[in-house]
């Protein structure tokens, strides 16, 4: 049971939630598209046509797959352009895109294409950079299998306990998948906390930039905000 789109909340006092929060998890199956690019112009061209789940995969899967690394490597496009093609300036531009500012994958896709094409206009020599065979950019898409977990929370205390225990895949689902793939206006935790009567905590959690933390660091930051609220 996922939280409904939150209605406008005016209550600021803690209250018992109507619907307990059910933590879900999302397991990712990687699906190949058979599409590949060895140079930037082809990358941009293919980027225009691949499914949204492909854009999502290459800008998000690394967060899940390298969640233990500090600092985290950059998204797949930035990593390939910087490390394989050796176009570090463009790699840096793509790595520094604030993905949190994009509320839909279509806009993010357009921005990626624009940045690459703008760079190619200003740096014509970059057109001649080729990845060698086997090091091309391979387009992959994510198939997400979403399942409920055994963890639920009806109060903020229970929420803190569960948040501490759920897998990083569950955290990833509620923070990244919910807004960008499922079209919710913010992360699932904030939506539910608003309903529970903690609008300030909901705002604080929504204000964390999840792209600049590892998943475990994100979990600790959220937990410490929740615990501060509990101790007030």
């Amino acid at each position: 049971m996922e939280p409904e789109q939150a209605s406008r909340m005016t209550a600021v006092e803690p209250a018992q939630a109507i619907k307990p929060f059910r933590f879900s998890t999302s397991l990712v199956l990687q699906e190949a598209t058979g599409l590949r690019a060895a140079r930037l112009s082809v990358l941009a061209q293919i980027l225009r046509t691949v499914p949204d789940s492909c854009i999502y995969h290459h800008t998000h899967y690394f967060l899940l797959s390298h969640h233990y690394l500090t600092p985290e490597p950059s998204n797949d496009f930035a990593y390939w352009i910087g490390e394989v093609l050796g176009e570090e300036a463009l790699g840096e531009r793509l790595a520094s895109l604030d993905i949190i500012e994009y509320t839909d994958l279509g806009t993010l896709r357009q921005r990626l294409v624009d940045v690459i094409e703008d760079y190619l206009k200003r740096t014509p020599a970059a057109r001649f950079k080729f990845a060698s065979e086997g090091e091309e950019f391979f387009f992959v898409k994510s198939v997400h299998v979403v399942m409920p977990t055994a963890y639920t929370a009806a109060t903020l205390e229970e929420f803190a306990d569960a948040l501490e225990r759920v897998s990083v895949r569950s955290l990833y689902f509620h923070v990244f998948d919910a807004p960008l793939r499922l079209g919710r206006r913010t992360n699932d935790f904030s939506l539910w906390l608003e309903q529970l009567g903690y609008p300030e905590l909901a705002r604080e959690i929504a204000a964390l930039d999840p792209y600049s933390y590892t998943l475990e660091m994100l979990r600790s930051s959220m937990l410490s905000l929740v615990r501060q609220t509990l101790s007030r």
Binding site: L29, A32, T33, G34, R36, G134, E136, F138
Partner: peptide, 18 residues
């Protein structure tokens, strides 16, 4: 099901990477 995306050709069915 393939081990690596480089081994995959474009085909109509689901082509999974494992």
């Amino acid at each position: 099901v393939y081990s690596h995306p480089a081994f995959v050709q474009q085909m109509p069915m689901r082509q999974v990477l494992v």
